[in-house]
Every structure is written in C-alpha cells, then in structure tokens.
Computed example of a mutant assay.
Amino acid sequence: MTVDTTWGDRGVFRPREVGPRAAAAEAPWRLGPFADVPDTVLDAGRVGALEVRAASTRGFAHRCDGDVRQDAVGLSAPAGRVVLAAVADGVGAATDAHHGARLAVRHALGYLAWAMPDGPLDGLLDAVDVAAAVHAADRAVGRAGPAPRHRSTTLTVAAVDVSPGAGGHAFRVARVGDSPAFVLAHGRFRALFDDVEGELHDPATDSLPAPAGPVERVAGVLAPGEALVLASDGVGVPLRETEAGAYLADAWAEPPGPVAFLHQLQFNVRSYDDDRTAAVIWAGSESA
C-alpha cells in the first residue's frame, strides 16, 4: 500500500513564502488534545464605516506536534456603538495556558459590554475603561481554579468608536504582557507600545493572573484608510523581523475578504512557527 505523503493546500491557497521555508509548515497536522479548542477560528464584519477581521490559528509547530492552540481572539460590537477586540497569547510553558487565554478574552469583552454607558454617542470612549476590562479578565483567570499560574496569558484589549470625530475614529488600547498593537498607515506598521526588539518578557511579571507591572494604555485616532492591529507574538515578531511585515502591510492596505485574511496569516517563513492571531479594524470613509 502506498501512502500519499503530500500535505497542505495547493494553488492559490498555498501559504505565501516570505523567506526560507519552514519544514513544519508542510508536515501533516495532528489533531489537538481538546475537542473544544479547534485549530482555527475566524470572524469578520462591518460596523458603520469600520471593517473588522479576526483569526486565530495554530502555528506550524503546534500542528506538527499535535499541541493545542494557546492563542485566543474575540470581537464584539455592543449596540453597534463601539467595536471591541481582544487578543490573548497563552504562555507556552503554562500547562493550561489555552484556558487562560480564552477566559481572558471572554471576560474582558464581557466586562466592556456590561459597562457600556447609555446616553449620547459623543465622547463615548471617555467612559469606556479598557484597563478595567483587563483587571476583570485578571480576576477571572486567577479564580478559575487551583494553580492559577498554569493559566498564564497575555491580554491586549481595544475599543474603537464607531462614530467618527475630528480626524477619524477614536480608539483605546490596554494590555498586560508583550502581545503587540500597531496602527497600519501609509504602508507601514507603527507600534503603539515601546517593545524592545529581542526582549524576553518574564511570564511571571508580564502576564495574567496577578501581573507585577501596571496595565499599559494608549489612545489615538484612526484616520480614514488606517487600521488598528492587535496581534500575538506569532504575527507581531515576524512582522517586525522578516519580510512578513511588508507582505502584510500590502495585503492589509484594504480590508481583505475573511478567507483571504485567514490565508494571509498562514505565511511561511522558517523559525517563526508560533500560533498566529490577529484582530484588525479598518477605518473607512464616512460614506462607506
């Protein structure tokens, strides 16, 4: 009996090679150990003039080894007034990191939806406390069971006002850990946090639950045509260090279709085989 050893997509769906090829990218996938954590999740939508895409998918190494996806991502748009997004990256050494990441995303977005104020839309984000959402997620991850450090995870949360103001759509971002956030404008990714390239973050101090450091916060405005990008390290590191940055800047110059977005996250480059997760919010024109 001859077994066909070829594996992976072909033709237009073959992952884009943006550097030396990763051997694990062409190895057969092994099913993960948890039935409720699929290989990939995908979401997309349009809210007013905002286009939104999000995906989380196992990295090549996790697929090859049959390990669980440790990243998580979530989107919501409470009452169509604000777009919320969250990305969490479970710490690799933590045995239940995937659970922590999913808890963090769920409770951060749930808190923001619960705390959304009623009343006029003007200045809405002034009353939306994304840092408080991170604290709510921290409590949930810590109280989910014994040995909370087994659920260690980063968390980055964003809120974008659907109603444009002067210059565009106001946004707020907060995080614990090193999962990056960017604004994509004029073909370049501008980092919103001062991460040091090559810096190794201590998971004992830069992750939920009970981080030692404060929640980092940043605010800004998305001008028409710009995009806010939340990512896990599996996207953020190769984006900064390889040709993947130029590739994604071109691919995300305009909102791609949902399936195309997922395909773009599957870029193939050796040594960058972590889980791939991103949530991207594009600001269109008011007439879009």
Rank of each mutant, 00 (worst) to 15 (best):
P117N: 02
P117H: 08
P117G: 04
D118F: 01
D118R: 13
D118E: 12
D118N: 09
D118V: 04
G119S: 10
G119K: 08
G119A: 08
G119W: 12
P120G: 04
P120A: 11
P120N: 03
P120L: 07
P120I: 05
P120V: 05
L121A: 14
L121D: 15
L121Y: 06
D122P: 00
D122R: 15
D122V: 12
G123N: 09
G123T: 01
G123R: 06
G123E: 04
G123I: 01
G123M: 02
L124R: 08
L124V: 10
L125Y: 13
L125Q: 12
L125T: 07
D126K: 09
D126G: 15
D126I: 01
D126E: 15
D126C: 11
D126W: 13
A127M: 11
A127W: 05
V128H: 10
V128W: 11
V128N: 01
V128E: 04
V128C: 13
V128I: 12
V128T: 04
D129K: 12
D129V: 00
D129E: 14
D129H: 13
V130R: 09
V130T: 15
V130A: 05
V130Q: 01
V130P: 02
A131I: 07
A131W: 07
A131S: 14
A131K: 10
A131F: 07
A132P: 05
A132H: 01
A132G: 10
A132D: 03
A132L: 10
A132I: 00
A132F: 04
A132K: 13
A133D: 03
A133F: 00
A133Q: 01
V134A: 13
V134N: 03
V134S: 05
V134C: 13
V134F: 06
V134E: 09
V134Q: 10
V134P: 07
V134M: 06
V134W: 02
H135I: 03
H135E: 15
H135Y: 10
H135A: 14
H135N: 12
H135R: 15
A136K: 08
A136D: 10
A136N: 06
A136H: 14
A137C: 07
A137P: 01
A137N: 05
A137I: 04
A137T: 06
A137D: 09
D138Y: 06
D138F: 08
R139P: 01
R139H: 14
R139L: 14
R139I: 13
R139S: 10
R139C: 01
R139G: 03
R139Y: 13
R139E: 15
R139V: 14
A140V: 05
A140C: 03
A140E: 02
A140H: 09
A140L: 08
V141N: 00
V141S: 00
G142D: 11
G142V: 02
G142Y: 02
R143Q: 15
R143F: 03
A144T: 09
A144E: 05
A144C: 10
A144R: 08
A144H: 09
A144M: 12
A144S: 14
G145C: 13
G145A: 11
G145L: 01
G145P: 10
G145F: 06
G145K: 12
P146Q: 12
P146H: 12
P146G: 15
P146S: 14
P146E: 15
A147L: 06
A147F: 05
A147Q: 11
A147S: 14
A147P: 00
P148F: 03
P148C: 02
P148G: 09
P148Q: 03
P148W: 00
P148H: 02
